[in-house]
Computed example of a mutant assay.
Amino acid sequence: MSDYLTPSPNIETERLLLRGWRESDFETVAAIYADPDTAAYIGGVQDRRQSWRTFAALIGHQSLRGYTFYAVERKDTRDTIGWCGPWYPEGRPEPEIGYSLHKLHQGNGFALEAVTAALRDSYDRLGWSTAISAIDANNAASQKIAKRLGATWNGETFMLLPGRTGQIWRHLSPDRFRERFHDAA
């Protein structure tokens, strides 16, 4: 039996491995939610018990939808540094590409690398015809990544959480994405 909790294909990029979840990955989820800076745009700080429920929800999404966020692992260190990938829970307006990385691994281009690979996978393997990223209005770093991928915000918003409105950044269509990122991984 595999030690993976989610049956996901591995996606390799130059520096990253996007893969299914392992129970040991919970420590990364808990660390991201324990830090006020990294938790600020994904629902706020959570204690370990709350983080466990979030971790279980990530894994449960796989059972309900057939996909979920990938665990993001650095190939050079084998450290799990966060998550990225397809997400479409009840109440979201459209299929979404979401991500979060541990603070120690931000600012190195890992998020852009992971989101590019996850978006390609969602279009090619899952057959998505559209994708959005719901981004907190104050999250300039995620907005920058969305822009670099060609996503645009046209004023659409979405209630991320009670009292928290997010901007809906619309990604390029599958054909336009493939034209622009044909050789990027």
Results as ranks from 00 to 15, higher is better:
39 A>C: 13
39 A>L: 14
40 A>Q: 06
41 Y>D: 00
41 Y>W: 03
41 Y>R: 01
42 I>E: 00
43 G>Q: 07
44 G>E: 01
45 V>K: 11
45 V>Q: 12
46 Q>L: 15
46 Q>R: 15
46 Q>M: 15
47 D>P: 14
47 D>I: 11
47 D>M: 12
48 R>N: 13
48 R>M: 07
48 R>H: 13
49 R>L: 13
49 R>A: 14
50 Q>F: 10
51 S>R: 10
51 S>P: 13
51 S>H: 11
52 W>F: 06
53 R>T: 06
53 R>S: 11
54 T>F: 06
54 T>L: 11
54 T>N: 05
54 T>V: 11
54 T>K: 10
55 F>H: 00
55 F>E: 03
55 F>P: 00
55 F>W: 05
56 A>R: 11
56 A>C: 14
57 A>C: 09
57 A>K: 14
58 L>N: 05
58 L>H: 07
58 L>C: 07
59 I>G: 04
59 I>Q: 08
59 I>H: 08
59 I>K: 06
59 I>W: 07
59 I>S: 04
60 G>C: 07
60 G>W: 05
60 G>I: 09
61 H>E: 07
62 Q>C: 12
62 Q>V: 08
62 Q>F: 15
63 S>D: 12
65 R>M: 14
65 R>Y: 13
65 R>D: 06
66 G>T: 10
66 G>E: 07
67 Y>E: 01
67 Y>L: 01
67 Y>T: 00
68 T>S: 15
68 T>G: 08
69 F>V: 11
69 F>Q: 04
70 Y>S: 14
70 Y>H: 15
70 Y>E: 09
70 Y>R: 13
70 Y>V: 12
70 Y>I: 09
72 V>W: 08
72 V>N: 09
73 E>A: 02
74 R>N: 00
74 R>K: 02
74 R>C: 02
74 R>W: 00
76 D>Q: 06
76 D>T: 04
76 D>P: 02
78 R>V: 10
78 R>E: 12
78 R>K: 15
78 R>I: 07
79 D>T: 11
79 D>Q: 14
80 T>E: 05
80 T>L: 12
80 T>V: 15
80 T>M: 15
81 I>S: 01
81 I>D: 00
82 G>A: 05
84 C>R: 02
84 C>T: 05
84 C>G: 06
85 G>F: 02
85 G>C: 06
85 G>R: 03
86 P>M: 12
86 P>S: 13
87 W>A: 00
87 W>F: 07
88 Y>V: 05
88 Y>Q: 06
88 Y>R: 09
90 E>N: 07
90 E>W: 04
90 E>S: 08
91 G>M: 09
92 R>P: 00
92 R>G: 03
92 R>L: 15
93 P>D: 04
93 P>C: 04
93 P>A: 08
94 E>R: 03
94 E>L: 02
94 E>S: 01
94 E>M: 00
95 P>G: 08
95 P>C: 08
95 P>L: 08
96 E>M: 03
96 E>H: 04
97 I>M: 02
97 I>K: 01
97 I>V: 08
99 Y>S: 14
100 S>E: 10
101 L>Q: 09
101 L>I: 09
101 L>P: 09
102 H>M: 10
